[in-house]
Write a protein that binds this DNA or RNA. Structure first.
Ligand code: MN
Ligand code: MN
Ligand code: ZN
Ligand code: ZN
Lengths: 139, 139
DNA sequence: TTCCTTATTGCAACTTCTTACAATAGTAGA
DNA sequence: TCTACTATTGTAAGAAGTTGCAATAAGGAA
């Protein structure tokens, strides 16, 4: 609850104002440790800041992701989850059981250079989602 | 409208019954040529089959994608679009302007083998979405 | 053809997500 | 401090997507 981490500098560095709504949302994501859906963020952040509303949660998550404070991950069927942007990694997701594995970005470097030089795009180095079947679900 | 293509064999091959709802949905996707959102599919397929309902559209799109007759693509912010499964390809999407580029699967083969042997997953060879900035949006 | 089984659909209610706009409150500057 | 500017938020309404269950109809067997 009372937590030593101060998000103000990171918000200001991105030209964003420091509001209690943003602090509550960042605080919740920090303490969850993992990926949370907007609904989960809303329910938990409301504990610390009861007047928080749903539109604010959705807008804040999008804004903070755009400013690279958060990472958004697609986990299938249009569901999105968010986490604090800390490590560079991607996801392998089983589309049968939903099981998820994290993989490093390094093995994608070569591919990224190919794509970037052939298309002119500059690609994000985090949170690509690969779908497939996990070992358990292949039988 | 009256279109020579018959989807019945492909449906039966997957153990699915042939219904006018499924035919209308497949027909719409065939004639659109590209990616359509569930809402777009619903609006168009309703022209040919007016009693069609939303839950049927959502369920059908998911079912047909699961049986590999369709491909689902994540296009950002939890939006999903579908298309007929014909070619193997992936997408590069600009998260500023939404512009999309298709890329071949071939350059991913090596990466896939690495991931598959290190994790045991068997990955889908189509419709991975890479996000980034297109050439126009980088300035 | 007719009957039977059950996959598929429609219905109704609900949850999640979005939007436009007015009210609020950070923050920079006087 | 106080003020002014405007980013951010809340409100209210609507759109999109989901769920459980009862009704329907596709397809196999007689
Ligand atoms: Mn992650
Ligand atoms: Mn595609
Ligand atoms: Zn699995
Ligand atoms: Zn762009």
């Amino acid at each position: 609850m009372t937590c030593s981490i101060n998000y103000a500098p990171r918000l200001r560095a991105q030209g964003l104002r420091v509001t209690p709504q943003r602090n509550a949302i960042l605080h919740v994501l920090h303490h969850s440790g993992g990926h949370l859906s907007p609904t989960q963020v809303y329910e938990r952040a409301r504990q610390e800041f009861p007047s928080l509303t749903e539109p604010t949660v959705y807008r804040t998550l999008e804004d903070l992701a755009e400013k690279k404070l958060l990472l958004a991950a697609h986990v299938g069927n249009g569901k999105i989850v968010y986490e604090l942007a800390e490590t560079q990694h991607h996801h392998l997701i089983c589309h049968k059981c939903g099981n998820t594995v994290e993989v490093d970005h390094a093995p994608l470097e070569l591919l990224y250079h190919q794509f970037e030089s052939s298309t002119g795009y500059k690609l994000d180095s985090s949170h690509v989602t690969f779908f497939g079947l996990c070992p358990d679900c292949q039988s």
